[in-house]
Amino acid sequence: MANPAGGADIPVEVNDPAAAQFASRLRKVARERRKWAAREGVACYRLYDADVPEYACAIDLYEGAAEAEGELYAHVAEYAPPKSVDPEQAHARFEDVLALVPVVLGIPPEHVFSKSRLRAKGGGQYRDAGGRRFVTHTSEDGLICEIDLGGYLDTGIFLDHRVTREMVGKMAAGKRFLNLFAYTGVATLHAAAGGAKETTTVDLSQTYLDWAARNLAANGFAFEVVDKPNRRDRTDGGSARGRRGGAANKLVRADVTRWIAEARRRHERYDLIFVDPPTFSNSKAMGRRTWDVQRDHVELLVGVSRLLADGGVAVFSCNLRTFKPDLEELARCGVELEDITAQTIPHDFERNLRIHKCYLVRRK
């Protein structure tokens, strides 16, 4: 195997000679992608997404930030093979991938993290095959973002939504911003950095809400944690870098659909809303209810539209590749949808234009 740093070739033992095709493809894409990332100032991006069908995985590269400045990490997620593929053969090929990635990319083997996408029982969610946490930091548009490369299937930042978050940041100046199904709050970071008048971040998971709090603090944004309307539980003031701006940034732990209903009763209004729900959820915290974005999107978007101030707009994104909005029912409820998906697909995801759907939502 050619040494990316020059010098003598590096021997790599593989199970299948066809792995050379995978290595060649990864080397070619990495060369182009790294030049693009340096030119565009992108610090974390996709390198490979099952480009060679026999090697079915996604490979993302993360440049370190903060305490990890100068480090490089690779995150390799194996796709569950179809039933037509022998499991042992699929396992052998994935072993070859993990042997080749550090050599081709010139990354220390201990900086390569692997996950397996396994279909969970009884639902549409994926679960990972487990792993130890490895918490570090990367950046997006100069914002420091905490990532966990080892403990979760998703690292804490959805790379395919990079352009969408940048758009939100540009739209946020002077606005009252609401982030629903907020995950680790990276969209909130963009809104706060973009000059939002105030931000509200809502998620059911305490784990992710705490993660969002650390992201805000790492970037010097003060925030408050609110567990009930008009009640402030805790106030945290930025980081050692000092407090940025005077905006109020609220973190709320709540079931999003129930919170929307309560916010409507309180007559809350927002100028800009970002809503990126999961495809499916049967979280225990939801009780007996389940969430399905295809089944439930009309109710969700009607509720979101009622929280918009005059002239306000919501950005709705989802990752269900077969998603079809019920435009007729939404129109009947006074909701207008504008498909902007083509504008939100990053260069590093252009091989798969179905990676997500994205819409602007307005109230008629």
Results as ranks from 00 to 15, higher is better:
Thr138Ala: 02
Gly194Ile: 08
Ala74Pro: 13
Gly106Gln: 07
Tyr183Glu: 02
Val112Pro: 05
Gly169Trp: 02
Gly156Asn: 03
Leu189His: 00
Ala191His: 10
Gly124Tyr: 13
Met167Lys: 09
Ser84Met: 11
Phe181Asp: 02
Arg132Phe: 10
Glu198Arg: 13
Glu78His: 14
Ala77Met: 15
Val103Pro: 04
Phe134Asp: 13
Ala77Arg: 14
Glu88Asn: 14
Thr184Ile: 03
Glu146Ile: 03
Phe94Tyr: 10
Pro87Cys: 09
Phe177Ala: 10
Tyr79Ala: 06
Asp128His: 06
Phe181Arg: 06
Gln125Val: 15
Arg93Gly: 05
Leu180Asp: 01
Val104Asn: 07
Pro82Asp: 04
Val97Leu: 03
Phe158Gln: 07
Phe158Met: 05
Arg165Leu: 04
Val135Pro: 09
Gly131Ile: 06
Asp128Ile: 04
Ile144Lys: 00
Lys197Ile: 06
Glu88Asp: 15
Gly194Val: 14
Gly195Asp: 03
Gly169Thr: 08
Lys83Met: 14
Leu189Glu: 00
Pro108Lys: 09
Ile107Ala: 01
Lys121Ser: 13
Thr184Pro: 06
Arg132Gly: 15
Pro87Asp: 12
Glu146Ser: 05
Lys115Asp: 03
Ser139Glu: 01
Ala120Met: 10
Ala192Ile: 10
Asp96Met: 03
Thr188Ser: 13
Ala77Ile: 15
Arg133Tyr: 11
Gly185Thr: 13
Pro87His: 04
His161Glu: 13
Ser139Thr: 00
Phe158His: 07
Ala187Asp: 10
Leu178Ala: 07
Ala182Leu: 09
Arg117Ser: 04
His137Leu: 00
Val85Pro: 05
Tyr152Asn: 15
Arg132Glu: 15
Tyr79Asn: 05
Phe177Trp: 09
Gly130His: 08
His190Asn: 08
Ala92Ile: 09
His190Trp: 04
Leu159Met: 11
His111Asn: 14
Gly123Val: 12
Arg93Met: 02
Lys175Arg: 15
His137Pro: 00
Gly122Asp: 12
Gly150Cys: 07
Gly169Ile: 12
Ala192His: 08
Asp160Met: 04
Leu98Pro: 05
Ala187His: 09
Gly174Phe: 04
Lys170Leu: 10
Val163Pro: 03
Val97Thr: 11
Arg132Leu: 13
Gly174Tyr: 05
Gln125Glu: 15
Asn179Ala: 10
Val186Thr: 07
Pro82Arg: 03
Val135Arg: 07
Ala196Asp: 01
Phe113Val: 03
Ile107Phe: 07
Met167Trp: 08
Ala192Tyr: 04
Ala90Lys: 04
Ala172Ser: 11
Ala191Gly: 08
Ser139His: 00
Ala129Asp: 15
Pro109His: 04
Pro102Glu: 04
Glu140Trp: 01
Ala80Trp: 08
Pro87Val: 14
Lys115Ile: 12
Gly106Ala: 10
Ala187Lys: 09
Phe134Gln: 12
Gly195Gln: 05
Phe134Pro: 09
Lys170Asp: 15
Gly194Leu: 02
Val103Arg: 02
Val76Leu: 03
Ala196Leu: 01
Asp128Ser: 05
Asp160Tyr: 11
Gly185Ser: 08
Gly195Thr: 09
Ala120Cys: 11
Ala191Ile: 09
His75Glu: 06
Phe113Arg: 05
Ile107Arg: 02
Ala99Arg: 06
Ser139Leu: 01
Gly130Thr: 10
Gly122Lys: 12
His75Phe: 05
